[in-house]
Amino acid sequence: MALFAPPPMYADPTMAADKQHAFNPYSENGGSILAIAGADFTVIAGDTRQSEGYSIQTRYARKVWQLTDRCVIATNGFAADGNNFVKRIKQRLEWYEHAHQKQMSIKAIARLTQTMLYGNRFFPYFAYVILGGIDEDGTGAVYSFDPIGSYEREACRAAGAAQSLIQPFLDNQIYFRNQTPAPGAEPFVPGRLPLSTVLGLVIDSFTSATEREIAVGDGLELYVVMKKGRTTDDLVGSDNLIKNMQVQELGALGEGGSERTFLVSLPLKRD
């Protein structure tokens, strides 16, 4: 068998030369994204820096997009793939709305995302995707995906350049890893933290990532999706505003819902 096997491709120097010049259709544009689910809200955030290698391409490029009244998407990896993936998924959601007279649930969007990503199994979208929002029960939901569509529902997820910095922190703070409840205290339950605590964790995650990861910085865009009827005082109350932070409510996209989505923007360090 081995006797008659052709020599491997790399053994031919001319082929090796060709291979070296092959066009690489991918790039990596830095940045990080993050989502945390609460009992009746979800926070989805991303920084606004877009870079390639050591160069900052722009200090403001969006990575997080509102899809429906109860679902927000964030992508990270190759920006062109991310943007075009979001464009495609928005198109599919519009068709769904025309066909069914309602917006797609986050659970269905998650499965659609898997199908669309896996559909490109042999020329993948180089995009790490996180969905955040409110599920059909009114509970905060986070779904995370790898570039070829493998996905799961979680209480929180960080992805991108600062994933290795943020995720362990979240494991500790959200999943209470390496923490022990005080004797006699209630056991820990992930996904039940109040919004103010979650906002603090997200902002601290990004300011810290900005300090240690060159691909993260410039600005933070943080989307908060709230369950129908939930109080908004803990977000829009003036006490909660930190310096230079801006909160803006995004109008409803559909007509059903009455879930509410807010966009919180604040600057990050630019160096």
């Binding site: 544009n29 391409q57 722009t58 490029a61 190759f78 062109a80 943007n83």
Partner: peptide, 8 residues
Amino acid sequence: LLGTTYSA
């Protein structure tokens, strides 16, 4: 050439 886009 990659379809990468940005504005500044």
